[in-house]
């Protein structure tokens, strides 16, 4: 698999993630879109790592995965706390303050 193809897929995934964050209003789906963005970055990192023959890219991909886990834990905790208070996780209904 050539680097160009990997980067094409990676940029396509990143675009899907960005659009997901900007267009969806469900907080959990937005978080899923962020995960897609991070995965696009990981794909680019690992493709570059293979291309350059240096393992550094794989190490950062490992760190990104762990950071994604930490973010998911905190993000879902916030979702849970908001849901308890208001029975909804839509960002639209967060309009007590303008978005």
């Amino acid at each position: 698999m050539s680097l160009v193809w990997m980067l094409t897929l990676s940029t396509a995934l990143f675009t899907v993630g960005v659009l997901g964050v900007l267009l969806r209003r469900n907080a959990i789906v937005i978080l899923m879109a962020v995960e897609i963005m991070l995965n696009a970055a990981n794909l680019a990192l690992i493709a570059f790592s293979r291309h350059l023959g240096s393992a550094d890219g794989q190490i950062l991909a490992f760190f990104v995965m762990t950071v994604a886990a930490a973010e998911a834990a905190v993000g879902l905790a916030i979702v849970l706390a908001i849901f308890r208070l208001r029975k909804s996780v839509n960002v639209d209904s967060l309009n007590r303050m303008k978005w």
């Binding site: 995934l13 789906v29 899923m32 879109a33």
Partner: peptide, 8 residues
């Protein structure tokens, strides 16, 4: 790609 698009 399908998975990502469908997921969002």
């Amino acid at each position: 790609l399908i998975g990502a698009i469908a997921a969002v």
